[in-house]
Simulated assay, not measured.
Amino acid sequence: MRWDNLYIAGVGSYLPDQVETVDEAIAAGRYTEEKKAMNGYRAARVSAPGETGPVMAATAGRVAVERSGFAHDEFGVLVHSYVGHQGLDLWTPASYVQQETIGGSAPAYEVRMGCNAFVGGMDLAASYLYTHPDAHAGLVTGGDAFHLPYLDRWNSHEQNVDSDGGGAIVLSTRSGFARIRSMFTYGDPSLEPLGRCRAEWSTAPFPDGKTLQLDRSMQDYMHNKDIDLDEIVERISGGVQHSVSTALDEAGIELSDVRFFLHQQLAETIAEYGIYKLLGVDREKTTFDWGKDIGMVGTIDIVLGLEHVLTHREPKPGDFILLQCAGGGYVWTAAVVEILETPHWAS
């Protein structure tokens, strides 16, 4: 969808102080030299006790709200995104984040779309703001913490390295330092079995107490002789291409017009073949190599990349930034952002 009066007014992030390097993980027997060479990650952030996903999201949210300049009573919606456990069972983390950031009586929603949830949540928050004229601003947050025994950040994925942190963006229909020209979300639920396959249903979370092995379902699915692997790759690649090309078309620009291309902090091989060669993106336009020292932070890689561009890459008025994200299920979101001015906090 093309947006005419949708702005980014504030950005905030929080990363824990503790850094665990790939070499430390290898020495501890949780990672391998082969994975280091294949995936390219250098380090991950590790949250302290009590630094749950919602706690870190709220910290980032307070920064984004302060930077936006909007008063708490001007916020009409909060959308909180996440991938993993939020610190408590059968709980409402979005309402916690709301109380810790903007308060008030606006509705607080949770979005779960895998790693696509933050950017997909921006799409939902924008739609809410447009259908509620009295709501001038919306806060979108994300936060995750990944810990043993539930999940091993180094070993539960064959290719991803999961890192802890929180991020937030303030959207507004009034003003901001950047304008969102377009956003497009596209889903292909025929790929959902990649994350489920023949896994048995359980009656409660973490039923056997064994650390999650998140690639096992996909591997089982791929070994099914009735599955056409080429078709699966084509559908996943097609989702990336379709979301990006549609967002660009709706914004009225070409990929060559984009100065910065922000995507998730993927493994090296996935980024190379699933983004750069697939789309023809110049790697120098991304924050990928910088992000190797952080890892994949739940739903908020895009926020971290955007804040890094704003504070270290000197974007100028008129520059276009393309946000591209994907989540298991499968769902893709792409957004075209135009820089209007350098925010005061980034200079």
Rank of each mutant, 00 (worst) to 15 (best):
D164T: 03
F177E: 02
M222H: 11
E34Q: 13
G238S: 09
A28V: 02
P343E: 11
E200I: 11
E33Y: 11
L90I: 14
D144Y: 04
V97A: 06
Y130E: 15
F260H: 15
V244Y: 03
M38H: 13
G298C: 01
M1T: 12
I270G: 01
R62M: 00
E231N: 11
S190Q: 14
S237I: 00
A271W: 02
E314P: 00
W290P: 01
G195E: 02
K285Q: 15
A178P: 00
G40I: 14
K285D: 05
D162F: 14
W91D: 12
C115N: 10
T141F: 06
A271D: 05
Y150Q: 13
T286F: 01
L266F: 14
A137Y: 06
A108I: 03
V22G: 02
K277E: 10
S47Q: 01
G121R: 07
L279W: 07
T333D: 03
Y330H: 11
L278K: 05
E272H: 13
S175P: 02
L255I: 10
E254M: 10
Q219R: 13
N5F: 03
R42W: 02
Y14V: 04
S47P: 06
Y273F: 01
P189M: 12
D215S: 12
V258M: 02
E250I: 07
A178R: 07
G280K: 07
V303F: 03
A199F: 05
L323W: 13
S95D: 14
S68D: 05
G305A: 04
F146S: 00
Y186S: 12
V83E: 06
P207E: 04
R181P: 05
Y109W: 15
H242V: 00
R179L: 05
S105A: 11
R42K: 14
L151M: 07
V119T: 11
K285N: 03
D319L: 08
D162A: 10
D4E: 13
D220K: 07
M38A: 14
R283G: 02
Q86G: 09
E250P: 04
G76A: 09
I169C: 04
R112G: 07
D123I: 10
E200M: 15
N160C: 09
P107V: 06
D228R: 10
G239Q: 03
A64Q: 06
V233T: 11
H263A: 04
H147Q: 12
D220I: 12
M222T: 14
S156F: 02
G298A: 12
A125I: 04
Q324A: 11
L90S: 14
G120R: 02
G167Y: 05
S182W: 01
D215Q: 09
D289P: 05
Q159T: 15
G84K: 11
V79L: 13
Q18V: 12
F75R: 07
M113I: 03
C197K: 11
V79I: 15
G76H: 14
I270Y: 03
T342I: 15
R153M: 00
L262F: 07
S237E: 14
